[in-house]
Simulated scan of single mutants.
Amino acid sequence: MKLMWKVILVFMSVLALVFFFTGDFFLSAPASTENTANKLETLAKLDKEVEESSGIEQIPGTNNKYLTHNDAGNKPRLYQINEQGEVEQTYKPDLPNVDWEDLTQDNSGNFYIADTGNNSNKRRELAIYKLKLGNLEQAQAIRFSYEDQDEFPPSKKDRNFDSEAIFWHNNKLYLISKDRGRSETAKVYQLPDQPGKYQAKLIGSIKVKAQITGAAISSNAETIALLSDEKLHIINGFNSVENFYEGELQNISLKEAGQTEGVTFINDNTLMLTSEGGNLYRYSLQTASSATHQ
């Protein structure tokens, strides 16, 4: 019995010594796995004028100025905001706002407003408005329908003809659908960026268990960012933008960010985001410790 107690005392003494010399390591280990560079940074509360921000783009030639807009039920306005969330200028194009859902731009100074909201999948003709901020009266319309839609609306499980996400590349517009039926497939459509009337061409799809609410492309055209409620979906590793949907998909949690709707790249590794509810966020893509792959 005495021998057993001696063994226990020796064992406990060894444990005490190990903890004495390494305790700091064990206590601090969880903090070392936390990647602060990957956290969502809240920059500001947006002005009440843009509490339902649905899209965002950086304004070329400005120092951290952005263009944003509200969605259905609001005036057809574009708002210039700063990183403090303040509205600095309001643009009033003479256009209807049936349901403005996203914003993109080309490399010639044109912005594209996606009047493509289609919650009930009943709209037979949708529109994307092309304009320059310095020449609003010359706005042009790109009108379209989806080449694979023949019911208005389709059955509830097949309602995948709403789009809240758009980006521009190489004279083409890419629209990503919001799968209201099954929340599992984001379809990818392509349109020319010139005014006219078209059928949007279905070119591919992405298996993602989310309803996509925004899209953006990096300036080097190597990364596509898709957005859904409190999630980012990053795609890279593709051969060309025309088949970006074949790239590697990375899902990143944006816990507690709310109803995230607008996204744009401010450089190839940094995103600016907005949410309905009125917040402006910044997010770094350099690391993604909270990501999962599929």
Rank of each mutant, 00 (worst) to 15 (best):
L3Q: 14
K6E: 12
S13A: 15
V14A: 11
L27K: 13
S28K: 14
E34D: 14
N38P: 00
L40S: 01
L40N: 01
T42N: 10
K48D: 15
K48A: 15
E52C: 10
S53C: 07
G55R: 05
I56K: 05
E57A: 13
P60N: 05
T62I: 04
N64F: 12
Y66L: 00
Y79H: 09
Y79G: 00
Q80W: 07
Q80N: 06
L95P: 00
L95C: 05
N107Q: 12
N110A: 09
D115A: 05
N119M: 02
S120M: 10
R124C: 03
K132W: 06
L136W: 02
E147I: 04
D150K: 15
E151P: 01
K156W: 07
N170R: 13
L173E: 10
L175K: 11
L175E: 10
K178I: 08
S183E: 12
S183F: 10
G196S: 10
G204R: 01
I206N: 10
K209L: 11
A210K: 12
T213R: 06
T213F: 02
L226A: 06
L227E: 01
E230N: 11
L232A: 00
L232N: 00
F238W: 04
N239D: 15
S240R: 12
S240N: 13
S240G: 12
F244P: 11
I252C: 02
S253K: 13
S253D: 11
A257N: 06
E261R: 03
T264F: 00
T264Q: 01
F265V: 05
I266Y: 00
D268S: 08
N269R: 11
T270D: 15
L271G: 06
T274E: 04
T274Q: 08
E276D: 12
Q286T: 14
S289D: 14
A291T: 04
T292Y: 14
